[in-house]
């Protein structure tokens, strides 16, 4: 009995295999870098570049965006054209990443990421308190709903 059970399982696996025969794409032929916050202290980046490695990834601190120059926090060399990496960050800071190559001492930009704001990670020291009153009028809502139904038609 148990033997036959194993055979059934094996057969099942084969059927599955056929459906997903292909492996998922390793490259999408695109220059791209994504930056995400994992938690208040960690960043994650994922990239794909259509050129040959090595590349330089530069991470900028955008928190004080009115400074004449954005702060480059750190940069590092990567040896693959498709990859992921985790980095340290600071709570509430704003970051941006760039990937590029260094030619003759100059950084040549290939792709730039989105801007990430890190979570706060602690209780605020600001004691300013704003209050808001929300007026909830049924009529207003009904109008709104009608309007949306047109924008989202079937």
């Amino acid at each position: 009995m148990e033997e036959e059970a194993k055979r059934v399982k094996f057969y099942k696996a084969q059927v599955w295999g056929q459906i997903e025969e292909k492996s998922i794409p390793s490259r999408y032929m695109k220059n791209r870098i994504i930056l995400l916050s994992v938690d208040p202290y960690h960043l994650f980046t994922s990239w794909e570049v259509m050129e040959k490695p090595p590349f330089i990834i530069r991470v900028f601190d955008f928190t004080r965006r009115f400074f004449p120059q954005y702060n480059e926090v750190f940069s590092f060399k990567v040896e693959s054209d498709v990859g992921n990496w985790y980095m340290n960050g600071k709570p509430s800071a704003v970051y941006l990443a760039q990937i590029g190559k260094v030619k003759e001492g100059k950084f040549i930009l290939i792709a730039q990421s989105n801007i990430v704001q890190m979570p706060n990670g602690s209780v605020s020291t600001s004691r300013i308190c704003m209050e808001m009153r929300k007026i909830r009028i049924e009529e207003k809502k009904i109008l709104k709903e009608e309007k949306m139904e047109h924008a989202y038609e079937r």
Partner: peptide
Amino acid sequence: DVYPENQVSRLNE
């Protein structure tokens, strides 16, 4: 409906 007034802030991820 009971308490329509509440504090406003930017929340934390």
